[in-house]
Amino acid sequence: MMENKQILIAQNDHSVKDDIDKLIYALQQYNLVYNYNFLYFSNKFLDPQTQKINYKHPDGWIYNDGGNGAQISLDGETCRIVTSYDQNPTMTFKQALHEFPRWKSILLGKPVTAKVHLSLSNNCDLSVTLSDGIASSCKHFQGEEAGDYIVELHLDINATAEKLYIEIKSTSISAVIKITKAYANLGNIAIENLPCIVNGFIGERKQYISTEIPPATELSLCEESVELSDSYSRLNSVLNNKFGTGKNGNSLLPDMRGYFSRAWDNDSTTDPDAANRTALGKGNVSGDHVGTVEEDQYKQHDHQLKFNINGQVIGGTSAPSTIINITSGSKTEKSGGAETRGKNISELYTIKWS
């Protein structure tokens, strides 16, 4: 009996050690999900007609439901989605987790575990999927009762995978889905409070004085405007076509070459012409909004010309005449260069994508 007990203890010790090793490994990883708790909604705006905040999608996420009655919003601390009331609706809410430099050397052949915290307020058909395009881990809800759920998914990433994404999908009519958080990391344990693999904010603009080459996690804004490829879906969700849309339907990067930056006026009237600001490039935003443009100009003014029109010229036997003709206009001589500017230093402007 003593011998059997010692063997059992040894087996338990081995199991505990395995669990500790898994935990230690997971604690050394990063959260692959950007904006995992939906703090950032840069696309929300105040509707001037209803005076209510409208939402499009949280930063980093791709939301699709073109049907009638479809809604997405921030409800307290949760992302609230209402599917459309059309027949045969399909709502998808997903994020690409592989969008960072050298992701293949980090993810391929490795285990990834994810957790999604969600709440269903009515019966609905729903699926939560972690997929690399070759294999997937999926949890299906088919007419599940209302309630709170924590879905855990585990996937060994295929060695030849070209992507990794997490997706929530529903085909139910007028389903109400609340998602509190979604996180994923390398290893066999998903940990919520890991630092995100994106260090900073996607869409953040940066500037450099000593290089003309952007870092690997940023794209240059000092080049001709180009369309984002499908590899930048998280940045695309932030830009949301503010600076125009390319032929493939993705956002155009803004072309900031030669521009100075100015703080958003936001109805302060410090910028007296804010209402007349125009869109940058092929953008669709004008007026007193972030990302709009003003062309250079002088502030309206005049110059005093110092001369005396009371003097007279004596022309021999002719009648005296004034020095100048005050009925015709005159101009000062041209001076200056090609534009109005202050002293400045040229810098590289970039935008963060990962």
Rank of each mutant, 00 (worst) to 15 (best):
L253K: 06
V116W: 02
W103N: 02
G200L: 06
I179G: 00
A263L: 15
H303D: 10
Y55D: 02
G143F: 02
P111L: 04
G244W: 01
K22H: 10
L74V: 06
F100I: 08
V285P: 00
A70N: 05
K139R: 14
N241E: 11
P89M: 05
V116T: 10
E99P: 00
Y55M: 06
S229W: 01
E223L: 12
K282D: 13
Q49K: 12
A263N: 09
I157C: 07
V116P: 00
N68F: 14
K334Q: 08
I7E: 15
Y55C: 04
E294C: 15
H117R: 10
L280F: 13
Q11Y: 06
G337Y: 03
D59G: 13
S233V: 05
I177D: 00
T92P: 02
N88H: 05
D288T: 05
I72L: 05
L107R: 02
I309F: 07
G258M: 07
T180R: 14
V82E: 04
I179Q: 01
Q300C: 12
Y34C: 06
S328W: 03
Y208R: 04
E144V: 07
D13G: 09
S251G: 08
N188V: 01
N37T: 09
P111Q: 03
N12A: 13
L27I: 09
N344R: 02
D156Q: 12
D255T: 05
A146L: 05
M91R: 03
T332I: 08
E212D: 13
S127I: 06
L8V: 09
N188M: 10
